[in-house]
Simulated scan of single mutants.
Amino acid sequence: MNNTHFSHAGRSFNLIRYPANHQHKSLQAWDSADELLMSHCDDTLQDDARLMIFNDDFGALGCWYAHNQPLWISDSWIAHRSLQENLNANGLTCDISDTGRVSSPVNALTSVDALSVTPTTVIIKIPRTLALLEQQLIDLRRCISADTQLVAAGKVKAITRSVLALFEKYIGPTTTSLAKKKARLIFCTPSEPLPTVKSSPFPTRWTARLATGQSVSVANHANVFSRQSLDIGARFMLEHMRVENTDKVIDLGCGNGVLGLNALSMAPQCHVTFVDESFMALASAHQNVAENFPDKLEQCRFEPSNCLETLLNEPDHNSYTKVLCNPPFHQQNTITDHIAWQMFHDSRELLVKGGHLIVVANRHLDYHVKLKRLFGGVKVLASQQKFVILSAAKR
């Protein structure tokens, strides 16, 4: 049975990691850092507090503080869906905005939305990517006051000197609590005036050479995988991709969209759908198409989704001919292969008969066995010492 019953300080919730049917029985939707934040903030938070919550992995904090009607910010589509499911499951019926996100009792924003409210209290879960934390602190500088209280939390191993230095650099004096259950709190007091800093270092940029020889400038927002350079797996994939003008392509887990850019360069008439669960990734991909292939924007879509769930809910979903994928092997701070497995399942369902899933991955992950079991066969398109490119056709 899944570990979904959360009880703390006399209150109880049923909490899942979205999607519930893929949640491993050993994983839960909260951690000791959440509990530390709740214990501390319950003692200090006023009923009329203007509360902001950042990086709530699966909506535990959003449910706990729903009565405060907080502004809730996450870059993760899965976190947004978890928040919605968990609010509804615990009798906190929520309203959904035109963008498909919760608007009440929690007002859920993405990491690329502007912050317009001056909070009295800010709660931050330390994210896996320090660049995301840095951008969020930069965003907070524009709306906090000298009276705003900032409280952050994470596992002890996540509270590094680099993390504390970011709070000091952008906000002000920073201290930590003692460790409890392998988690720790961070307290930060805004300086008046705030520390002087240069403009945001994000998005970062570098130049990539595509398979056609074309060079493109690639912009990367703070939470994009391989933000500082083209990752080795993607580079290997660029060399071995084959795309036709008649193809309807999905760049799955698109990141900055470099595989989709390569497809547009190779086959100028193809259609590309960029899919990622990170809103910053989709913003990066959109910017990169707009800047490098402005005349191709009408041939492109940019969809936030848990794997290919969003597309599978559309009536004409099985019309795609190629899915290009460089799968992740972690979710937040948990190493897992269930995301890749769901990506493969969704791709098989979405593809036309004869369509191909093309995967680049570390050899040691042994995706060859999974794809053979799922598709009935798999071909090795290319291999090297570290990476392999696999192709599986829908029969």
Rank of each mutant, 00 (worst) to 15 (best):
S116I: 08
L132Y: 06
F167P: 00
A179V: 13
L166I: 00
K180M: 14
V163N: 07
D56L: 11
S116V: 06
D147F: 10
G91A: 13
H80W: 05
T174Q: 11
W77N: 15
R141T: 00
E168V: 09
F54H: 04
A131R: 07
D113V: 07
S145C: 04
K181R: 14
D48N: 08
L115V: 02
F54E: 05
L132E: 02
M52I: 07
R142V: 01
S145T: 04
M38L: 13
I138Y: 12
C143D: 05
L92N: 09
I53T: 02
L45P: 00
L36N: 01
L150V: 12
T99K: 15
A183E: 14
V102S: 13
C94N: 13
I144Y: 07
I123E: 01
T174L: 11
K181P: 12
V163I: 10
V151D: 05
E134V: 02
T176C: 11
C63R: 09
W72L: 15
D113R: 09
A131F: 00
S104T: 13
D75F: 15
T121R: 06
I159N: 12
K157M: 11
I73E: 11
G59V: 11
R128M: 11
L36V: 03
L132A: 13
W64F: 06
L133P: 03
V117G: 08
A108Q: 14
A79K: 09
C41K: 01
A114R: 15
D98E: 15
K182Q: 15
W64I: 04
L51H: 00
D57P: 03
L37G: 03
L109C: 12
F54W: 08
P105S: 11
M38A: 11
R128H: 15
V163C: 10
L92W: 12
S162N: 14
A79W: 09
L166T: 00
L61V: 06
T120R: 07
A183P: 03
L83E: 11
L83S: 12
V122D: 00
Q46T: 04
I124S: 05
T121G: 02
E85H: 14
P127N: 10
L166R: 11
S74G: 09
I96P: 14
N55A: 11
L51V: 00
L137V: 00
K125I: 02
R81C: 07
D139K: 10
H67A: 15
A114K: 15
A108F: 07
P127Q: 07
L140K: 00
M52D: 04
L178D: 14
